[in-house]
Amino acid sequence: MINEKPKSLLGLKDLTRLEIENILQQATLFKEIFNRPIKKVATLSNKVVVSLFYEPSTRTKASFDLALRMLGAGSLGFTPASSSVTKGETLIDTVKNLESMGVDAIIIRHGMGGAPHLVASNTNIPVVNAGDGFNEHPTQALLDMFTMIEEKGYIEGKKVAIIGDIMHSRVARSNIWGLTKCGAKVIVCGPPSLIPVGIESLGVTVTNNVEEAIEDADFINVLRVQLERQKGSFFPSTREYHREYGITAQRLKKAKSDAIIMHPGPMNRGVEISTEVADGPYNVILEQVRNGVAVRMAVLYMLLMRSKEI
């Protein structure tokens, strides 16, 4: 249809298993580029993409920038601190202006759930959610799933433990949507004050016992304790958190010997994960980061090539 909105990636909530698998398949092809002497293709050389980061980010922003460069696309960085946002410009006005200048897609990170949806409904270009409040972080979950497949071959039937602040975690939510759609068994674990109401309805098991959570797990995804989101006392101290929920070498003795340790970063060493584990044998934390570029290349490629066809 001519007037149909271009596809956006707002969350894994909205995708089918097939759509997820197609992205991961595409990412495999892009990862191959990493091994080439010239890490670049010219696929999107006629495109310019703007990244709007309303929240600070190292990994995700750099990863999207690299992905765009490797695809040959132009990228336009933008931080609210040095923009008209400080003059009170609304999100909708900001993105409409950028669209009017001719950017081909918008990557957005925002502190509030639903902000990328608002952008998508007010523009006619693809929107990629790079993390919105504690709603979703779809590319993170895709790169997590990509890494899982690299490590163990497939996701169907695997047990994934997600440990930590589930309530404020967009990474947890996107992982839950993606993993359950692809047939994984997901168990979430954290202090009861950080388990959101009704999370079971997303098809996961809940426990407050970290040993129980990691037992038999094929993957242990350790979430960052988001100290900046802790309004009100969800737990008394990082010390007690580490004692009760931290992933340590001692605790890992209860897990499978080949259980894979994952973390979306940035890590609080000594809080949710001990340094020994973070740098230990089965951690794939840096591989996750590397895969992030391939996955984001796949997402951008698929959204922008598709919109060209319309």
């Binding site: 504690f134 709603n135 979703e136 967009r170 009704g198 999370i199 309805s201 309004k231």
Partner: peptide, 19 residues
Amino acid sequence: SLDGSMNEGELSTILGLPG
């Protein structure tokens, strides 16, 4: 109520909004 913006429940968990 803190800085909540919708009913706290299954749907606020799904939408990632403070309840």
